[in-house]
Design a protein around this nucleic acid. Structure first.
Lengths: 328, 328
DNA sequence: CTGAAAGCGCTTACAG
DNA sequence: CTGAAAGCGCTTACAG
């Protein structure tokens, strides 16, 4: 039914190799070029990608491994990657691991098996198994959102963001602080943000800060905050490690009749769209996820072509001063 | 570097065809089976997918075309599809069109070109061009979220949901109503939900209802509501066609110091996670997006295997009675 | 510039 | 049960 290169060659009265050369920009005389062009147009011929890939031993596809699909950060990063890859004539294959690390490892092997050209990896943590998979498959990998000395990484500036947010909060007079973070297994979110914040606190001095920890889930954060806020909290502000956590805390505060920011200030990290529309609008850090996706796409393509890419690229961020922080 | 079937055959001392038969579950004697098994384990051999697909003329891949990635409905549907497809031993390829209808059409051709087995299409509208693309590529397509007589469709029960929500609101005493909808180009969201709601209103009688229209974007809805609410609105409730719109309206109300639900009730459609955490929690309809994704995956696989699937499958929904609607 | 031939790695009748 | 051979649709040296 669908035409092959042999059909085109026959109809055009040339050899298959000539058609192939035409297709791949090899040298073909003007006359034959026109003839082939004509035939291809008439027949609507499109090359079979499998056959091409079988020869090339690689498909022009970049695999992206993500821990989840239902997250602002992920979807925006993905949109950036997709856009840029399309511009560069590549396709993207998304693999969702549902936060299952084993599936992350498997995905690397599976993508390699499918001769994917390179992998963009959004992972919270890099284990020896990751390293082993990357090494044995020998496939170019770009890590996004986390940094690892042995892998090219694209990260957000979590440390500085934490610092700037900390400074902002302290400048507004807060001295008794609470920080609601996440597991330190996650270096970027669990460690770096907190470190930046802590440095701001230490520079200022004469502060008290209590550190707490919850999960990434909004509902968990809400439950946690419900407990925390039921007894008197010795803090005028809760700095949350993500917007989701901040949203959960805001909910809990509303439920307990605690006024924000009048009685309690709250901040987040992320810059999710919805943080602008909640009431009061959340003061937070905006990370340029989409932009990061674009750069990630460019970088992985460079890596595939064995071009130089710096080991770590750091993205910028922006402090969004909104309504959820009061002077005190 | 990586082994081929020929290598395995040589090492095991059998013919390539025997190895192939082993791989594909053909009849092989126990002795040779063990030998081949052994060699494959030792070498870590994995078949080349391109070569397989080149022969099979089709890859075991389902393409999913989505209008956007950063939407609760999309990402949850996608998760359901992905899960189910994985269970059935298929892979999923996601194509994002960024709401560009031309890219939707292109994507169909492109996926066909890549010998994808079937397509799950999340589209707001089906045009003749869609139909033509589906026909000429002759690829099985399942439409999700919208219904079209010529295409197998999986839809949410927008009409009944609209009706039930309408009844609920009327039961709580509201008689002066406003409905903030979207373009009727979108049959499911723009037409069906409104129709169901309207029927409830007509059944009740002695109501006034004003219909308005905005876009799907939260920020647009907010702007629109800001204008609408600045002059006296002759309604005790605004029924919004999506959660995003409802969120935008809530924001506008907050900004204008209008109390929800005290002075104005608001409802949405969708059941996004965040609607539970805003204050007040939004009364809305929850659609089972993830479940729909699973069924979509099963159905498209059936279609690919030429098994029977009913032309239209209707999903259930659930009314979430929360805090944003007052008695009046 | 052009063509004949070999080969990419697999599968599938067809014999035996 | 097993193997030799042809073929899937393309690309790539190698001659001419």
């Amino acid at each position: 039914m669908s035409k092959t290169i042999a059909d085109i060659a026959r109809i055009a009265g040339v050899a298959k190799s000539t058609v192939s050369r035409y297709l791949n920009g090899g040298s073909v005389s003007v006359a034959t070029r026109h003839k082939i062009e004509q035939v291809i147009k008439e027949t609507g011929y499109v090359p079979n990608t499998f056959a091409q890939s079988l020869k090339a031993k690689t498909a022009n596809i970049i695999g992206t491994i993500v821990p989840r699909l239902d997250s602002f950060a992920t979807s925006h990063t993905l949109m950036g990657i997709d856009d840029q890859l399309r511009n560069q004539g590549c396709r993207m294959l998304i693999t969702n691991t549902s936060q299952d690390m084993n599936r992350e490892i498997e995905a690397i092997y599976e993508l390699a098996r499918q001769k994917i050209s390179g992998i963009i990896l959004l992972a919270a943590r890099i284990t020896d198994e990751h390293l082993e998979a990357i090494e044995t498959t020998n496939i170019p990998v770009l890590l996004v959102g986390q940094q690892h000395e042995q892998i090219h990484s694209l990260i957000h500036n979590d440390y500085d963001a934490g610092y700037e947010l900390g400074r902002y909060v302290l400048d507004r007079g807060h001295r008794r602080l609470a920080y609601l973070g996440v597991t330190e297994q996650d270096i970027a979110v669990g460690v770096r943000r907190k470190q930046g914040f802590t440095r701001a606190v230490e520079e200022t001095g004469a502060c008290t800060v209590a550190y707490y920890e919850t999960s990434f889930r909004m509902s968990d954060a809400r439950q946690y905050a419900l407990q925390l806020l039921q007894q008197p909290l010795d803090a005028t502000i809760i700095v949350c490690a993500t917007d989701n956590i901040a949203l959960g805390v805001m909910k809990a505060a509303h439920e307990l009749g605690i006024e924000i920011p009048g009685q309690l200030s709250i901040t987040g990290f992320g810059g999710y769209d919805v943080t602008e529309v909640v009431h009061p609008a959340l003061t937070t850090i905006r990370y340029p996820y989409q932009e990061a996706g674009k750069i990630a796409a460019q970088d992985i393509v460079k890596l595939v072509h064995r071009q130089h890419v710096q080991m770590v690229t750091v993205m910028d961020y922006e402090l969004l001063q909104r309504e959820s922080v009061d002077k005190c």
